[in-house]
Design a protein around this nucleic acid. Structure first.
Length: 742
DNA sequence: ATCGATACTTAGCATTGGGGTT
DNA sequence: AACCCCAATGCTAAGTATCGAT
């Protein structure tokens, strides 16, 4: 973990008082009362929950976490199968893009567009300016420009570099495409997220296609024709048949209940027992269908691909403040059976199909509004520029709102991301003060302050999540720091030769198990004992604390500080430190990358980012080993040849043999390098078996640290960030120099 | 203080795509 | 050309955080 912490550790308290604890005891009980009732309920689910699958294999770390057993087996697949069928439909007019009148011009002074850069040879910018001044509808020229833009965007992503170069010279159109550097522009200060927004609305899930009549459903051994409504829901179940969770009671119960709601009265009276339903023919049909899809010819596949691309071009972009920006998720989630993660009480419920009348559109008043499909209406069209979403609807399982928003490469997401790291850097400047303060607060007379201080210590030291309260029975039973319960920690005055050990064992976000044994300072330990006194296992550990209270306090310590900033800060600072520590200047590039990955891994472990070991892990390790062995053989052959060439050269001493020695020497070196690369790869893969690097890379690590590292050591940034990631972090690639310090 | 609504970030797994291999 | 493999992408659930009403 972050080296920063270590210093704390050593200043181990000076004289913790065992007792001051007692005087505060009294206060807390009453607060607890509130949750007793829910505690009861919780019990049930909890118990079934608690046996974690024991994962033996954890290598380099003592932390081990595994999704809790109940959840683990079944958790994965389940949903999206149905979407295989889709694709074809939803076509609308072909006219592409945004032909509409664009932008309103109204906001003149508008910081956003003030191009401060002289360097603006970029076409986009030029366009902007034109549009900007002439608040009008697009002219033909504009249209053309737009179109070009489309092409550019398209070509870029897929075209290889060389191609681009070629294209570039054939038309001037290439360079104007120069990426927009939004980070060089002013940011709005009035809380508005945009001035102009135009888009085409969402792409709906394709309508249900009834099964061919040869595919039968049987109830109690007898064939039965289902109504289309009931049949559709049945197919959702059929598609999941080979997954374990279709065998789970809750899943089956929820499914059956919702399925019956879709049945007509005849079906309802006949079909009363899920166990008597035979979905096998349906399941077979879908399997065959996906086989068929795979074996499609090239042409067919190409056609599908083109169709997809067309849809992307039409619906996958919006115009926001004079720039064409990619939308993240323009397709509406198809209907299906809900499968939450972990032990979710709602698993198996029917996730309803979303229709136009469920949809709220958000766009500029003066944009061309998206059209609902013929014969339908939107629920609402609003013009709220204080938010970033384009489309929203309410989902029926939890009643939460879902949104269509922009891609991470967009200005609006990028700015926010950048800002997030700037906040974390501000924390860096005052973290010592804050740490001193919470250490002081461990001694407070007030229970709530002690709790707050201990919780904050965990959040800082262990990078725990804040732990908002959740609605009981609506979701899987998971916790974060503030919502830890007594049963989630175990105290040992002495364990494995260490004093004051706290053992954490709980399910966190996504029901991923957090397991860790941590020696803490005596004062923390004593406080925990105090917090746990007279409580039941399922009582809150921090009964006087919640995330709102904590964040309010943090806000006072530093503007913009919330619990999650600590995670960002500790992740980024850890990366920076680890890179410094692990990178060897004389290493070659692959070895340096291994060091990078190890630094990244340290962060992933800190943040508890796990993954199930890939199903094919063993095999792929084996394959790699085979390659390595082959390479070793090749190496010894090459060495032998070199030797004999040398011997030869000694005798003959002519130019030709000398040359030959040189060549062979080169060959040996090349093979050695290849071998080393493979070995590094094997090490990296092995170490990464159950650790997911992506999440921290994408969400917690200030990209400028990585960019600076690449520059410093001459590692191509493409080795660290793939294309998508480079797009997301374009701001960082552009601005970070080798001396960047987080 | 608590609740419910809202908006936005973070998360892991499933599927896909496209390059390499046979 | 079929197949294999893994990185990249897609998907959407599950978090965090804040606000305004009660």
């Amino acid at each position: 973990m972050s080296g920063d912490h270590f210093q704390n550790e050593n200043q181990v308290d000076c004289g913790s008082r065992v007792n001051d604890s007692h005087k505060h005891r009294d206060k807390h009980k009453e607060h607890k009362l509130k949750d007793h009732k829910k505690d009861k309920e919780r019990d049930k689910s909890k118990h079934s929950n608690n046996d974690y699958k024991d994962s033996s294999d954890k290598k380099h770390r003592e932390k081990e976490k595994i999704r809790h057993k109940d959840g683990s087996a079944d958790k994965h697949k389940e949903k999206r199968k149905e979407e295989k069928i889709k694709d074809g439909k939803i076509k609308k007019e072909k006219e592409n893009g945004f032909g509409s009148s664009m932008h309103v011009k109204s906001e003149p002074e508008d910081l956003y567009h003030a191009p401060k850069h002289e360097k603006s040879l970029k076409r986009e910018r030029d366009d902007d300016d034109v549009e900007f001044k002439s608040k009008k509808i697009k002219t033909e020229d504009d249209k053309k420009a737009k179109k070009r833009k489309h092409e550019d965007v398209k070509v870029k992503p897929k075209g290889k570099v060389k191609k681009e170069v070629a294209d570039g010279k054939k038309k001037a159109k290439k360079e104007p495409e120069e990426k927009w550097k939004w980070w060089e522009e002013e940011r709005a200060t009035d809380g508005s997220k945009w001035k102009f927004l135009e888009h085409k609305g969402p792409v709906f899930a394709p309508p249900y296609e009834p099964l061919p009549s040869r595919v039968k459903f049987y109830y109690d051994g007898k064939q039965m024709k289902l109504s289309p409504e009931a049949e559709e829901v049945a197919t959702f179940f059929a598609k999941m048949l080979d997954h374990e969770y279709t065998t789970k009671d809750i899943f089956r119960k929820n499914f059956f209940k919702d399925w019956r709601k879709e049945m007509n009265s005849e079906e309802k009276s006949k079909i009363t027992d899920l166990n008597k339903c035979d979905f096998n023919e349906m399941a077979e049909f879908f399997k065959a269908q996906s086989e068929a899809r795979k074996s499609k010819t090239k042409e067919e596949k190409l056609k599908l691909k083109e169709e997809n691309e067309r849809l992307l071009q039409e619906y996958g972009f919006c115009i926001m403040d004079n720039h064409r920006e990619r939308i993240a998720n323009f397709r509406i989630e198809p209907p299906g059976l809900f499968r939450g993660r972990g032990d979710h009480p709602k698993m198996g419920m029917l996730k309803r199909r979303i229709r136009p009348k469920d949809i709220i559109i958000n766009c500029s008043k003066d944009s061309k509004h998206p059209e609902p499909p013929p014969g339908t209406k939107w629920k609402e069209v609003r013009h709220d520029n204080k938010v970033t979403w384009l489309v929203s609807w309410t989902e029926n399982i939890q009643g939460s709102i879902k949104y269509i928003m922009l891609n991470p490469s967009s200005r609006i997401k990028g700015e926010k991301d950048w800002q997030k790291y700037e906040t974390a850097r501000r924390l860096k400047k005052c973290v010592d003060r804050i740490r001193n303060q919470y250490r002081d607060d461990w001694k407070s007379k007030e229970m709530r302050i002690r709790q707050r201080a201990v919780a904050l210590y965990f959040i800082d030291k262990l990078a725990l999540r804040a732990g908002n309260e959740k609605e009981e029975g609506e979701t899987a039973d998971t916790v974060g720091c503030c919502s830890l319960r007594v049963e989630h920690i175990k105290l040992s005055p002495e364990k494995d030769g260490q004093e004051f050990v706290v053992e954490f064992d709980f399910l966190g976000k996504d029901s991923i198990r957090y397991y860790n044994q941590v020696p803490v300072e005596k004062r923390v330990f004593k406080n925990l004992q105090l917090f746990m006194e007279n409580k039941e296992p399922d009582d809150d550990l921090f009964d006087r604390l919640n995330t709102t209270v904590l964040n309010k306090h943090l806000q006072e310590l530093m503007e913009g500080l919330t619990a999650k900033v600590f995670r960002t800060y500790n992740a980024s600072i850890t990366l920076q430190q680890q890179l410094k520590q692990l990178t060897n200047s004389e290493d070659n590039i692959p070895a340096k990358i291994l060091s990078y990955n190890r630094a990244n891994r340290a962060v992933a472990i800190l943040c508890n980012h796990q993954r199930a070991a890939p199903k094919t892990f063993e095999k792929s390790m084996q394959n790699l080993q085979t390659k390595i062995d082959a390479k070793k053989d090749q190496l010894s052959d090459a060495k032998r040849e070199l030797k004999s060439a040398k011997a030869d050269a000694k005798v003959r001493r002519d130019e030709k043999t000398k040359k030959s020695v040189e060549t062979k020497k080169k060959a040996v070196e090349r093979i050695e390098e290849q071998l080393m690369k493979l070995e590094v790869q094997a090490t990296d893969r092995e170490e990464n078996k159950q650790i997911a690097l992506g999440t921290s890379k994408l969400n917690y690590l200030d990209p400028r640290i990585s960019v600076a590292w690449c520059k410093k050591w001459g590692v191509p940034v493409e080795k660290i960030y793939n294309k998508t990631q480079r797009e997301k972090f374009a701001w960082a690639l552009d601005m970070a120099e080798e001396d960047y310090e987080f």
